[in-house]
């Protein structure tokens, strides 16, 4: 096997800077894992709660490295036809009819029918095909939604970066794609797969980093509003909620509050927009009213102390 060429050769600090240029503020743990994945040409496995920015890593990497982003969204029952390749049956049928009409030789029909032009390339096959811009970024999103048979199949692909199409032969990636697998952990992914990857747990950011993210991504928000909203969300995460809000929710919320013309956080605005942060009725019912006022008071007190 040819030793894979590293997709990128910088240090961890350079990776943090690279991601920051793409407006992604990564902590050192994540940046180290990304660096390793790129330098040793191995898949990266990102796990974490929904809305902490796992998918965004792939998008930013593709953008900053100038690579094509190929995304495979997983779902229950995802199979080879949807993930790797499929023959274009309607066109093949049409071709058969044409052959009948023109009385073409039947012997050649089969080889013609299973030629490249009847092949529909799905994400995994596209990711294995050569790309002039360099190996693409292959994002296998929410692998936990796919079922175990697909996971086992993926294991095979990630081992050799090749697929075999019986009618065409084996297709092999000249250089392995930059593979990023994400999981929301709605089920455990098998250890065998994780073992082939570099693992990173993407956690909720701390207050300082979350504020920096909000500044970058929701630039239109008032400074004070952003600060208070971030502090409030951080406090919410400490509550025993069924689903704690992610960074995506924080951004949504700050944007929603800005759209409503808020410049600071107040009880009424929280009541009107809590649905942007909390997505479960029992969580909203718990926080709405007295609890949110208490949290808001805490946030205010904290802020005045500084």
């Amino acid at each position: 096997m040819v030793e894979p060429v590293p997709a990128w050769g910088g240090t961890v600090d350079e990776m943090i800077a690279l991601l920051a240029e793409g407006d992604y503020l990564a902590d050192r743990a994540l940046a180290t894992a990304v660096t390793l994945a790129l330098k040793l040409a191995r898949p990266l496995f990102l796990e974490g709660e929904a809305g902490v920015g796992k998918t965004e890593v792939a998008k930013v990497l593709a953008r900053r490295l100038g690579r094509q982003l190929i995304r495979l969204q997983c779902y229950d029952g995802l199979d080879v036809a949807a993930a790797v390749y499929e023959w274009n049956y309607p066109r093949q049928m049409l071709e058969i009819r044409l052959a009948e009409a023109t009385a073409a030789s039947r012997e050649t029909l089969e080889t013609e029918l299973f030629a490249e032009r009847f092949l529909i390339r799905r994400p995994l096959l596209r990711a294995l095909s050569p790309d002039p811009a360099g190996p693409p970024v292959l994002l296998i999103d929410e692998l936990d939604r796919a079922d175990e048979p697909f996971e086992a199949f993926l294991l095979e692909i990630l081992a050799d970066y090749q697929v075999t199409i019986p009618e065409l032969g084996t297709i092999r990636a000249p250089q392995p794609p930059i593979t990023i697998i994400t999981s929301n952990r709605t089920r455990e992914i098998h250890d065998a797969l994780k073992r082939r990857c570099f693992y990173a747990w993407v956690d909720y950011p701390d207050a300082a980093r979350e504020l920096a993210i909000v500044r970058r991504k929701a630039g239109g928000a008032e400074h004070r509003l952003a600060e208070e909203a971030v502090a409030f969300v951080q406090a919410l995460r400490g509550q025993r909620l069924f689903k704690a809000p992610g960074v995506a929710e924080t951004l949504d919320w700050v944007n929603a509050l800005t759209a409503l013309g808020c410049t600071t956080l107040d009880a009424e605005a929280i009541g009107d927009t809590l649905g942007a942060v909390l997505k479960y009725q029992e969580d909203i019912a718990r926080i709405l009213g007295a609890e949110s006022e208490r949290l808001l008071a805490d946030v205010r007190a904290e802020r005045s102390l500084r």
Partner: peptide, 20 residues
């Protein structure tokens, strides 16, 4: 690949490889 200069780099490198 990562080097041994920083303690936290060593920490996160080993974490990425050994923890699943």
């Amino acid at each position: 690949v990562i080097g041994l200069c920083r303690r936290d780099d060593v920490f996160w490198t080993l974490h990425a490889v050994l923890v699943h």
